[in-house]
Amino acid sequence: MGLIQAERIMREDPAHARLPHDADYAHGAAFIDGRFCSVDTAAIPITDVGFLHADAAYDVVSASAGQLFRLPEHLARFEQSCAAFRLRNPYNERQTIAVLSRLVQLAGTREAYVWWCVTRGAMPDSGSERGNPSAYRNCFYAFVIPYLYIADDDTRNRGLDLRVSEQHIRIPEQAVDPTAKNFHWMDMKLSLFEARDRGADFSVLLDARGNLTECPGANLFLVRQGQLYTPDSGCLAGITRATVLELAAARGLPAHLTRLPASALREADEAFLTSTAGGIMPVNSVDGRQLGSGGPGPLTTQLHNDYWEKRWAGWHGTPVDYSAAQTTHTDLLIEARHHP
């Protein structure tokens, strides 16, 4: 059994084709604190401390074949992230869904990468109030672009080459909660640069005790003797990660959330990464050591194909209504209403 060539199917199959859209939205659509615009003209105020201090929570959901995947779970995680950082989404759930759906409509994207965040907002007029969460007006921003693959068909067919970072560790949980999706990416970015400098595709970060955590923007799984293992701490509670656990249960595959040393990954039979921007991504090697016979292993291939087949069949999907895509631009201002 080979991997489903998901990228090619999404690019060539008419069921996945992009719909007609205004030329302004050729590269995508954005929503900037109350107004829709093209992604090319979107901008945030330079004094927003989301920009100045990475003070924000965000989330990403994907659409395929015109269906948003596990949207309720993404929305719930987003609200949990906001609560963890004492942020408040100025839109309720219904309004948030309306904004995200409208962006997908405007861009005409059946295959879409849908990103949104709440930032702290501009610095208060009085510097003495910067430690008071209620002194800020939290702001909502979002954008939609055509689906973004962080591992294309060719890369998934051969499998990713990973490097366990030697220069960087994951930000400790006591500093920034990794289960709340946040802008604190410098540890992950620097480890990714390190991996690329060493000829690898992707990095893996350890915690201060030498246990596996996650990869830049992706959760990590390994397979040993027909069983799945994934780190239980130091990582995002990924929606694709949860999906893999559900798929594994359906196949009767034992799965373990546990502490894992780096050696467990290097000695695995198979490994793969999971992310909204890529789905299930097979691993070929770790620190120059090939896993198994190299490339996608049999269990990885099964789970990868299950993931796309079930998604395209409507599993956990929220269909986008594209019939409103031609609405005139006079209705594009949405008033922010805080939760009662």
Score class of each variant (00 low, 15 high):
residue 33 D to Y: 13
residue 33 D to W: 12
residue 33 D to M: 08
residue 33 D to C: 11
residue 33 D to A: 12
residue 34 G to Q: 10
residue 34 G to L: 09
residue 35 R to G: 11
residue 35 R to C: 13
residue 36 F to S: 07
residue 36 F to G: 00
residue 37 C to D: 12
residue 37 C to L: 15
residue 39 V to S: 10
residue 39 V to L: 14
residue 40 D to K: 13
residue 40 D to S: 13
residue 41 T to G: 15
residue 41 T to Q: 15
residue 41 T to S: 15
residue 42 A to L: 04
residue 43 A to N: 08
residue 43 A to M: 11
residue 43 A to H: 12
residue 44 I to W: 15
residue 44 I to G: 11
residue 44 I to A: 13
residue 45 P to T: 00
residue 45 P to E: 03
residue 46 I to V: 12
residue 48 D to T: 00
residue 48 D to H: 00
residue 51 F to N: 02
residue 51 F to E: 00
residue 52 L to A: 03
residue 52 L to F: 06
residue 52 L to Y: 04
residue 53 H to T: 11
residue 53 H to S: 12
residue 53 H to F: 15
residue 54 A to N: 03
residue 55 D to P: 06
residue 55 D to G: 00
residue 56 A to H: 07
residue 56 A to I: 02
residue 56 A to D: 01
residue 57 A to V: 07
residue 57 A to R: 01
residue 57 A to C: 14
residue 58 Y to F: 15
residue 58 Y to D: 01
residue 58 Y to C: 00
residue 59 D to E: 14
residue 59 D to Y: 10
residue 59 D to F: 13
residue 59 D to Q: 10
residue 60 V to H: 03
residue 61 V to I: 11
residue 63 A to Y: 04
residue 63 A to C: 12
residue 64 S to W: 13
residue 64 S to G: 09
residue 64 S to R: 09
residue 65 A to Q: 14
residue 66 G to K: 04
residue 66 G to W: 09
residue 66 G to S: 04
residue 66 G to C: 05
residue 68 L to D: 01
residue 68 L to H: 03
residue 68 L to M: 11
residue 69 F to E: 00
residue 69 F to K: 01
residue 69 F to A: 01
residue 70 R to I: 08
residue 71 L to N: 02
residue 72 P to R: 07
residue 72 P to V: 02
residue 72 P to G: 07
residue 72 P to I: 04
residue 73 E to I: 03
residue 74 H to F: 07
residue 74 H to K: 05
residue 74 H to W: 08
residue 75 L to Q: 03
residue 75 L to N: 03
residue 77 R to Y: 14
residue 77 R to F: 14
residue 77 R to V: 06
residue 80 Q to M: 11
residue 80 Q to V: 09
residue 80 Q to W: 14
residue 81 S to A: 13
residue 81 S to L: 11
residue 82 C to H: 02
residue 82 C to W: 00
residue 83 A to G: 11
residue 83 A to E: 13
residue 84 A to Q: 02
residue 84 A to R: 03
residue 84 A to E: 02
residue 84 A to C: 05
residue 85 F to G: 03
residue 85 F to K: 02
residue 86 R to H: 07
residue 86 R to Y: 09
residue 86 R to K: 05
residue 87 L to C: 08
residue 87 L to I: 08
residue 88 R to C: 08
residue 88 R to W: 06
residue 89 N to Y: 15
residue 89 N to R: 13
residue 89 N to D: 13
residue 89 N to H: 13
residue 90 P to M: 05
residue 91 Y to C: 09
residue 91 Y to K: 08
residue 91 Y to H: 14
residue 91 Y to L: 14
residue 92 N to L: 07
residue 92 N to R: 12
residue 93 E to Y: 07
residue 94 R to Q: 09
residue 94 R to V: 05
residue 95 Q to N: 05
residue 95 Q to G: 06
residue 96 T to A: 05
residue 97 I to V: 08
residue 97 I to R: 10
residue 97 I to H: 07
residue 97 I to M: 05
residue 98 A to K: 07
residue 98 A to I: 02
residue 98 A to H: 12
residue 99 V to P: 05
residue 99 V to Q: 03
residue 100 L to R: 02
residue 100 L to D: 01
residue 102 R to G: 09
residue 102 R to Y: 15
residue 102 R to P: 12
residue 102 R to D: 07
residue 102 R to T: 06
residue 102 R to M: 11
residue 103 L to I: 07
residue 103 L to R: 04
residue 103 L to P: 00
residue 104 V to D: 01
residue 105 Q to R: 15
residue 105 Q to T: 10
residue 105 Q to V: 06
residue 105 Q to I: 06
residue 106 L to G: 03
